[in-house]
């Protein structure tokens, strides 16, 4: 309780701020709507209104503020509207048996999840192999490590449209692979850094002990370095999966994707339906939360089994 009460309070405060912000954000649209319905508003000309500040408009037309909370295409939707839209495109569709129709967020979330996991697997593999190579070869460490760091300061989004066009010209069908490459690019680095740290975490004494047993290097790797790196691996995997999701969504944003949560955001922007953008955003947030929680649970179970944690 002592842990959840503060979080809950802050969440409620954020929600309250959000609801309060809806009124000034939507006042112009609300007054336009009221004018069209024949209600007298001051000032009665849309152009002068657009130059007047929100708070002046709100004090002059207190009766019309409420309209801002039930607009079809609000500048800022209310939390209730977003929640209703989320339910309409997920739960309600699933109950009608259309969970995987093109309009359902479950379908788009599934598309995003697939590329995320694909990219995550790819990035983790590259990260782990890279870490092994770096730990066992000084040449590779000195050549590659600085570039691995520099690679993360390059804004990957600059490359995203490039990767997509490139792969379509080489003749790779679909967008799953280019999206996965982008998310792998974002998620390999935390895994690489974590694994290098983890593989180097065995102490001098432990390594020396294995040497006195005349252990081959492969056994040293499998029986000492690899198990020692698992706690580090899980910490970086949690960072990595969030990064992979960001990568997938960035890969879906530019240049005409049609499925995936990022594409929903893009389409919502093009068709001027803010509710679609907001619900896709929240779906992405929920997906990120679920993935990180799942990995955290896996981490707990694995470390308990290995005896790292009581």
């Amino acid at each position: 309780m002592t842990r959840f009460l503060p979080v809950l309070t802050v969440l409620l405060a954020i929600l309250a701020l959000w609801v309060l912000a809806v009124a000034p954000m939507n006042i112009w649209q609300a007054l336009d709507l009221a004018e069209r319905e024949g209600v007298a508003v001051t000032p009665d000309d849309a152009r002068t209104r657009s130059e007047t500040s929100a708070f002046v408009l709100m004090t002059r037309n207190p009766g019309e503020i409420g309209r801002g909370y039930s607009l079809d295409r609000p500048r800022l939707p209310t939390p209730v509207q977003v929640g209703r839209e989320l339910w309409k495109t997920t739960g309600a569709m699933a109950m009608k048996g259309r969970a995987f129709s093109k309009r359902s967020l479950i379908f788009h979330g599934w598309v995003t999840l697939q590329s995320t996991l694909f990219g995550f697997a790819l990035g983790t593999l590259v990260g782990i192999l890279g870490a092994v190579a770096i730990v066992y070869s000084r040449t590779i460490e000195m050549s590659v490590m600085p570039w691995a760091i520099i690679s993360q300061t390059v804004p990957i989004v600059a490359l995203a449209p490039m990767i997509i066009v490139l792969s379509s010209q080489i003749g790779i069908e679909g967008r799953a692979l280019p999206k996965a490459i982008i998310s792998a690019y974002l998620c390999f680095f935390p895994v690489l850094v974590g694994m290098v740290k983890g593989l180097r975490s065995p102490s001098r004494e432990q390594l020396d002990l294995l040497r006195t047993y005349n252990t081959p290097r492969l056994a040293e790797f499998l029986k000492l370095r690899l198990p020692a790196s698992v706690p580090y691996l899980f910490t970086s995997l949690k960072v990595g999966i969030a990064a992979a999701l960001v990568g997938t969504i960035v890969g879906e944003l530019p240049t005409g994707a049609i499925s995936g949560l990022g594409a929903r955001i893009l389409i919502g922007d093009q068709f001027g339906t803010p509710l679609a953008i907001w619900s896709a955003l929240f779906a992405a947030a929920i997906l990120a939360g679920v993935l990180v929680t799942l990995l955290g649970w896996l981490q707990g179970v694995t470390l308990k089994r290995m005896g790292v944690r009581p």
Binding site: R75, V157, V239, A242, L245, V246, I249, V250, L253, L261, G262, I265, L266, G268, D269, P274, I277, W278, A280, L281, A284, A285, A288, V292
Partner: peptide, 14 residues
């Protein structure tokens, strides 16, 4: 940890 880049279209329209 969230993909905050997604809010870009909203802020561009604001």
């Amino acid at each position: 940890a969230l993909p905050i880049v997604g809010i870009a279209p909203i802020l561009v329209s604001w």
